[in-house]
């Protein structure tokens, strides 16, 4: 079982990989469509990477709801991934 710190690092890594952005831009407030890099295409990659990194399967409601880094943590928490 990964620690909250490891999960936070993994989440940051997923966002930097899927959105192709620098790690320091991955903050809770970062939101879908708020930056050019997080468009609908990148969103699909993000979902795919999140599922792979945390071994979860997100349903469509989760994917629609995944509107920020903070939301990602909230959704993943429902699947048993701890961030705090």
């Amino acid at each position: 079982m990964a620690t909250p710190e490891e999960n936070r690092a993994a989440l940051a890594n997923v966002f930097t990989t899927a959105l192709a952005i620098a790690p320091d831009r991955v903050v809770d407030a970062l939101a879908y469509n708020a930056i050019a890099e997080w468009d609908s295409t990148a969103h699909m990659l993000l979902v795919s990477e999140l599922e792979g990194a945390f071994n979860v399967m997100l349903d469509t409601d989760d994917i629609i709801d995944l509107s920020s880094v903070a939301k990602a943590k909230e959704i993943l928490s429902k699947h048993g991934v701890a961030f705090a």
Binding site: M44, L45, V47, S48, E49, E51, G52
Partner: peptide, 10 residues
């Protein structure tokens, strides 16, 4: 297709 795409995108 939706479910497959998520696996393929990885």
């Amino acid at each position: 297709s939706q479910l497959a795409a998520k696996l393929m995108l990885r």
